[in-house]
C-alpha cells in the first residue's frame, strides 16, 4: 500500500497565500446556528482534512465552499469565503461556473443512471469544454486514467455505471469531477460507504491527485486523515477548535478537546 504518512513534511507552502479562505463564517439552518465564526485557510495542492464528531458542522462547512448549501431552503450565511482572493458569495459570481472550478465528491457514490462514458462526459458537455468527439473521448480517457479506473472499465464504457462495484462507482465519481478540470475538489466522507480495500484505493488516488488539485476531505476516520492529509482542522460544535499540520495535530495537539477526540475520549 503506497500510503504516505506525512511525518517528514517540511516544505509546506506558506499559509499567507492560501487557495481558499473562510473568514468569520456563520451559517444558520433557519433559527439554528450550525457554524460559528469559522476561520480556515486551504493550502494549494495539499490535502486538508476536516475531522470532528458527528454534527460538528464539518460537512456543512464543506458545502459552503462550493455553495451547495444554496440548494437547501432556509439556509442563511454571513461571513466570507474566498477562492483566489475573490469572495465566492459575491453577487457577481456565477455559481454554476464556481462549481465547475470547485468539484465535489459525495459520501455515497452517486453515479448517474447512464453509461460510464456519459457519466464522465457529463461535465465537459454541459460546460462546452470540447469541440469534437475526439476531444471528449480524450478527456474521458484521461479522467478515468487519473481516477485509476481506466484499466478496469475501458472495455465497457457504454455499460451502465450503476453496474460497477461501490468502490469503482466512487472512483467514477472522482473521474467525473476531475473531467471538468476543477482547481479544488471537495470530498465529503468519500470512503464511508466503501469496504477497506476500496477505501485504500481511493486514499491512494487522493494522494496522487494532490499533485494537480487542491483537496479538502471530510472524514470520520482519524487514521484516514493521518494517512492522506497534510493539514487537519478539528471541528467541534460548529467551531474550528484547532488547525495545523496533520503531524502536529495528531502528535502534539494544543487544545484539550482535540486531544480528547484523537485519543478517542469522545466523538
Amino acid at each position: 500500500m503506497a500510503v504516505v504518512t506525512q511525518s517528514a513534511m517540511t516544505a509546506e507552502p506558506s499559509v499567507t497565500s492560501p487557495k481558499m479562505t473562510a473568514r468569520d463564517l456563520n451559517l444558520f439552518y433557519g433559527e439554528n446556528q450550525a457554524l460559528f465564526d469559522v476561520n480556515l485557510d486551504i493550502v494549494e495542492r495539499q490535502v486538508t482534512a476536516l475531522i470532528g464528531p458527528s454534527g460538528c458542522g464539518k460537512s456543512t462547512f464543506l458545502r459552503c465552499m462550493n455553495r451547495m448549501n444554496d440548494t437547501i431552503d432556509g439556509v442563511t450565511i454571513n461571513g466570507q469565503v474566498t477562492l483566489d482572493n475573490r469572495d465566492i458569495y459575491d453577487k457577481a459570481i456565477d455559481v454554476v461556473q464556481l462549481r465547475a472550478r470547485i468539484g465535489m465528491v459525495f459520501q455515497k457514490p452517486n453515479p448517474f443512471p447512464k453509461s460510464i462514458y456519459d457519466n464522465v462526459s457529463y461535465g465537459p458537455r454541459i460546460h462546452g469544454l470540447v469541440n469534437s468527439r475526439d476531444e471528449l473521448d480524450e478527456i474521458v480517457m484521461t479522467s478515468l486514467e487519473r481516477a485509476g479506473l481506466l484499466k478496469e472499465v475501458k472495455d465497457r464504457l457504454q455499460e451502465p455505471a450503476t453496474g460497477l462495484s461501490g468502490g469503482q462507482q466512487q472512483r467514477l465519481c472522482i473521474a467525473r469531477a476531475v473531467a471538468v478540470s476543477p482547481e479544488v475538489i471537495l470530498m465529503d466522507e468519500p470512503c464511508s460507504a466503501l469496504d477497506p480495500i476500496a477505501t485504500a484505493k481511493v486514499e491512494e488516488l487522493i494522494d496522487e491527485l494532490r499533485s494537480n488539485y487542491t483537496i479538502v476531505i471530510v472524514t470520520h476516520s482519524m487514521q484516514q486523515a493521518a494517512r492522506v492529509s497534510q493539514r487537519t482542522a478539528f471541528f467541534h460544535l460548529g467551531k474550528v477548535v484547532e488547525v495545523g499540520e496533520t503531524d502536529q495535530i495528531f502528535t502534539n495537539p494544543k487544545d484539550e478537546r482535540t486531544k480528547g477526540y484523537i485519543t478517542g475520549r469522545f466523538g
Partner: peptide, 11 residues
C-alpha cells in the same frame, strides 16, 4: 444525491 452530483459538477 443524483441532483447534488449534477449541481456539484456545475450544472
Amino acid at each position: 444525491s443524483l441532483r447534488d452530483g449534477s449541481y456539484g459538477l456545475g450544472a
